[in-house]
């Protein structure tokens, strides 16, 4: 018999072990897992390969002192959305790329690099995706200090 939602969550907890820094389930089908950025690639690999989740997309956000990346994975069989969250200080905007283990993350990591200025270490093709070639270096449209008039 197919796994139900609670069994799926249980399996996820077992696979995750003690890696997550925080675990939140505000609604039955939404899970938010915070991980240290050094564990991010391995955790993403686990979600994609071992747990069998589908990669939906990722969100990069400037949250003030830090930059936040939320990778959204989905487990379609039970409609579960797993959000893997990692943070890094603005002074050190480098996080590991998950593209080597999750190919679908290729474009969205390049987009986050362009728009929020997060550097994905180990990305196989870190060219610009969104910004024009003549856009100035170091100016990120979705950073808080970026004014709309430019």
């Amino acid at each position: 018999m197919a796994e139900d939602l609670e069994q799926t969550i249980q399996r996820l907890k077992e696979l995750a072990g003690d890696v997550p820094l925080g675990w939140d389930r505000p609604r039955p089908k939404r899970v938010y897992i915070a991980v240290d950025k050094k564990d991010a690639r391995e955790f993403a690999r686990m979600l994609f390969e071992d747990f069998g989740a589908r990669f939906a997309t990722a969100t990069g956000t400037d949250i003030g002192e830090e930059l936040e990346v939320v990778y959204h994975f989905e487990c379609d069989a039970v409609g579960l959305v797993i959000n893997m969250r990692e943070r890094t200080p603005k002074g050190d905007p480098v996080v590991p790329s998950i593209t080597p283990v999750v190919p679908a993350a290729d474009w969205i990591e390049r987009e986050m690099n362009d728009l929020v200025g997060i550097v994905f270490d180990g990305h196989p093709d870190p060219r610009r995706l969104i910004l024009a070639d003549d856009w100035p270096d170091g100016v990120y449209p979705l950073r808080r200090d970026k004014k709309n008039d430019a």
Partner: peptide
């Protein structure tokens, strides 16, 4: 493929 000829910044 390189994209973004039509980026309108709708998220912003």
């Amino acid at each position: 493929a390189r994209i973004s000829y039509n980026h309108r910044g709708i998220e912003g």
